[in-house]
Amino acid sequence: MTELRFGLTAAMPCSYLPSQQEQLVFLLPEQPLDASLYQQLLQLNFRRSAEQVYTPHCPSCQACQSVRIAPEHFAPSASQRRLLNKASRLGWRYQLDNDTAGDYYPLFADYIRHKHADGSMFPPAPEQLEGMLNCSWLAVRLLKQFYQGELVAVTIVDETTDALSAVYTFYQPAVSQFSPGILAILFLLQAAMQRQKKWLYLGYQIDACQKMAYKAAFLPQQRFIQGQWRSFG
């Protein structure tokens, strides 16, 4: 990896653990960045936000653990198999493509208003979605889920040579009972196998945050803890 320059944000209240202070290390702007370099940074606990990449560097907390799964070794649980079978019976389908120019904002805004009205992304704004969809140095894909012929869920996905990385999932609140967030991961694991990817990255897991608990159910998995990847399950 070439020599890179990083910055450190000021401490601020953590949006996941209110008792903690959050700080981020980020790659300073105007440095060469491409999919190959980002692939290396993914392996070091970094994530993408719009055109920037960052990693948690909190003064007294190491709760954020990046999660990745090797698709060829993943074994769905009984409940995950039941969910996939249910989706298949109902004619649920997905596709992974690069059509990021569609009008996905109404679905995104509806999701934020209904599911995260108490979160940092409320109120929704078009710029939030545009920042995730558009990246000049990386291939951004969309995993789309369809139910009864209608687009009901979208997952923004970064693609590198050896990995898919799930950025954000949003969906119609009316289909929450079908667990589209869990289906998104199961479908991405299938897509990663088809594309012969080594890893699917799921972002950060925080054990004390209930909203993230679902990631721990995908086994076997690896988590980035204290500077190294450790295997679970």
Results as ranks from 00 to 15, higher is better:
Gln172Thr: 09
Lys144Tyr: 10
Ser120Met: 05
Ala139Leu: 07
Leu164Gly: 00
Ala101Asn: 09
Gln148Arg: 13
Gln128Val: 05
Arg81Phe: 01
Val157Ala: 02
Phe74Ser: 04
Asn98Pro: 02
Ala109Glu: 12
Ala125Cys: 09
Gln148Asn: 12
Tyr105Val: 02
Tyr171Pro: 02
Asp103His: 15
Ser77Ile: 08
His116Tyr: 15
Arg81Gly: 05
Ala125Tyr: 10
Ala163Phe: 04
Ala87Thr: 06
Ser120Gly: 04
Ile156Asp: 01
Ser79Tyr: 06
Gly119Leu: 06
Trp137His: 05
Asp103Arg: 14
Ile112Gly: 07
Arg68Glu: 06
Asn98Gln: 11
Asp97Gln: 14
Leu143Cys: 10
Val157His: 02
Glu150Gln: 15
Asp110Leu: 15
Val152Cys: 12
Glu127Gly: 04
Leu133Gly: 09
Pro126Met: 07
Asp162Ala: 05
Val167Trp: 03
Asp97Asn: 15
Ala166Asn: 04
Ala70Val: 05
Pro71Gly: 08
Ala70Asn: 13
Ile69Met: 11
Arg81Glu: 02
Asp162Leu: 01
Phe146Met: 12
Ala153His: 01
Asp158Arg: 12
Leu133Ala: 03
Ser120Cys: 10
Thr100Cys: 14
Pro126Trp: 10
Tyr147Thr: 05
Glu127Ala: 15
Glu130Trp: 05
Ile69Arg: 03
Pro173Val: 01
Ser88Ala: 14
Phe170Gly: 03
Tyr94Thr: 14
Met121Thr: 01
Gln128Thr: 03
Asp110Asn: 14
Phe170Arg: 09
His73Arg: 13
Lys144Glu: 04
Tyr171His: 11
Ala174His: 11
Ala75Glu: 12
Thr160Trp: 01
Thr161Met: 09
Ala70Glu: 08
Ala125Trp: 00
Leu151Lys: 13
Ser79Trp: 07
Leu142Asn: 04
Pro124Ser: 09
Leu90Gly: 08
Met132Tyr: 03
Asp158Phe: 09
Asp99Leu: 05
Leu84Val: 00
Leu164Ala: 00
Tyr104Cys: 07
Ala163Ile: 02
Tyr104Asn: 01
Tyr105Cys: 13
Val140His: 06
Ser120Tyr: 07
Phe108Lys: 15
Thr100Tyr: 02
Ala78Met: 11
Ser77Ala: 13
Asp99Tyr: 10
Val140Gln: 11
Pro123Ser: 07
Leu143Trp: 09
Ala87Asn: 06
Phe146Thr: 05
Asn98Ser: 13
Leu164Phe: 11
Ala78Lys: 13
Asp97Ala: 14
Glu72Pro: 02
Glu130Asp: 13
Val167Tyr: 08
Thr169Val: 08
Ala117His: 11
Leu90Asn: 10
Ala139Phe: 07
Glu72Leu: 12
Leu107Phe: 08
Leu164Pro: 00
Met132Gln: 08
Arg113Asn: 13
Gln172Asp: 15
Arg89Pro: 00
Ala153Phe: 01
Asp103Met: 12
Glu130Ser: 03
Pro71Cys: 09
Asp97Glu: 15
Gln128Gly: 01
Phe74Glu: 11
Thr169Asn: 10
Leu151Tyr: 10
Phe108Cys: 10
Cys135His: 13
Pro173Glu: 04
Gly131Asn: 01
Gly149His: 12
Gln95Arg: 15
Ile156Tyr: 01
Val154Asp: 03
Tyr111Lys: 10
Gly149Glu: 12
Pro71Ser: 14
Ala70Thr: 07
Ala166Gly: 12
Gly119Asn: 06
Lys144Arg: 15
